Simulated assay, not measured.
Amino acid sequence: MRLQKQKLFQAVYGFSLILGFCHHLVPQIGVLHLRDIGVSESTPGPIMVNLATYVGTSQAGFIGAMIATFAVVLPSFLIMLAVTAVLPKVIKNKYVQAALRGIK
């Protein structure tokens, strides 16, 4: 049951992103069209990565696709890298342990 709820949340989140693009970014910027969003979502993968890759390709070819994809992925990667570096020190804190027990 939990997995079904998680998948439902992911689907709703993805569709809300697409609706946000359709209503706000597409008319104002003029770079994307509704058909572009549909084409980018027809390929497998995360919604934002697909869209960034598609827009990058349409605007600047292969180099644009690489830059746009890295621009979407890099912040999350750097945050996870920082968390991984700090986690062994923080996990020993008694307050963090108490919070994790409470969450569990």
Rank of each mutant, 00 (worst) to 15 (best):
L74N: 07
V31L: 01
G56W: 00
I103Q: 14
S16D: 06
K94F: 14
H24P: 06
V49P: 00
H23V: 15
K104G: 10
A52Q: 07
S16I: 03
T43D: 11
T57A: 00
I79E: 14
L3R: 08
T57C: 02
A99P: 04
P46K: 13
V90T: 07
S76Y: 02
V86A: 13
T69I: 04
Y54C: 09
V49A: 12
A11L: 05
G38V: 07
A82R: 13
K89F: 15
G14W: 03
S42V: 08
A71P: 03
K89G: 10
V72D: 00
G30A: 02
P44A: 10
A60M: 01
A60H: 07
G20V: 08
K94N: 12
I37F: 09
T69P: 01
T53K: 03
N93G: 08
G61Q: 08
V86N: 04
V55M: 12
L25P: 06
A71T: 09
N50L: 02
M80G: 05
L87R: 10
L19C: 04
G38F: 12
K92I: 15
F21R: 01
R2S: 09
T57D: 01
P75Q: 06
G30M: 00
I103C: 14
V55F: 06
Q97R: 15
A98Y: 11
D36F: 12
A99L: 13
G56I: 03
P27F: 03
L100Q: 07
L78P: 04
G61K: 04
K89M: 13
H33Y: 06
L32P: 11
V49M: 11
L51H: 00
C22T: 10
Y13Q: 08
H33T: 08
Y95W: 10
H24C: 15
I63K: 03
Q59G: 01
Q6L: 09
L3D: 03
K5C: 00
H24S: 12
N93M: 15
L17S: 04
I67V: 14
G61V: 04
R101T: 14
P27C: 03
V39L: 12
E41H: 09
K5E: 06
R35P: 03
N50P: 06
V26Y: 02
D36Q: 05
I63S: 04
A60Y: 02
Q97Y: 12
A60I: 01
R2P: 00
H24V: 15
I103D: 13
D36E: 13
Q97T: 11
I29W: 07
R101P: 05
